[in-house]
Amino acid sequence: MLNLICCELIKLKRSKMIPISIIGVLSTPLLLLLEAVQTHFDKPGLAFTLSDIYKSSVLYSMLLTNMMIYVAITAFLFSREYSENTLKTIIPIPISRSRLLIGKFCALLLWILALNFVTWAGIFIVCGLYHVVFTLEKYSFPAAIVWLPTYLLGGILMFLTISPFAFAAEKTKGFVAPVIGSAVIVMGSAALANHDWGVFYPWTAIFFLVQGKINSSGYSTALSVIIILLVSAAGFILTFYHLKTEDLK
């Protein structure tokens, strides 16, 4: 299995998706920097800490920007075997279709976690720049590291809810359907981010879970977790079933 994951990572060598995805997730720290600078000039008396910035960043990273980027990289990972006609080269090697998908999902998880780490690190760095110029209260590495598990947990939850897009990419053999789908779910997430019903919407439920907002909504944490797991299971089952039974014409 390690070999399969290794091969999936080698396949990404020189891939433009790597720098594109890194630039994409760095938009969150940059947006936060702009917001912080704007707040500094508009409300000079308002004090905010590094932790406040990380708290705000969860909305951007879990609900908006990062989610769209993760759907795009999922579509890339799962559709490229069709677009580059490589399945007919690697399946007869032989590679079990299930193992191939497991390798891809593992690579996707690693990529998502790495990008969440980049987002977390990016925020720490841009806040450092802000701190040098304007001074940011409670700016320290220990204050930042507290948020790293939140980011990694968010990454795992985002990975779970992304599995239906793997199926969409596999089924349509391209980028278009998953990317349109991601726009739809992001719009839904934006609409439900401040609404208690967000706990029923798996992609918003992630945000509620990592922010610890579920209890204040009046619903149980288990409910959101079950919804996320059901969506995830459906995505995984459909993806595996489709490739296992598909004729590669």
Binding site: C6, C7, I10, K11, K13, N85, T86, T89, I90
Partner: peptide, 23 residues
Amino acid sequence: IETPGFYGNLTGEENLEIMARLR
């Protein structure tokens, strides 16, 4: 099978290495 498919971003050597590793 028909026109062989390989990963466009990799060299011929890297593509073959992937095949060998998978095997």
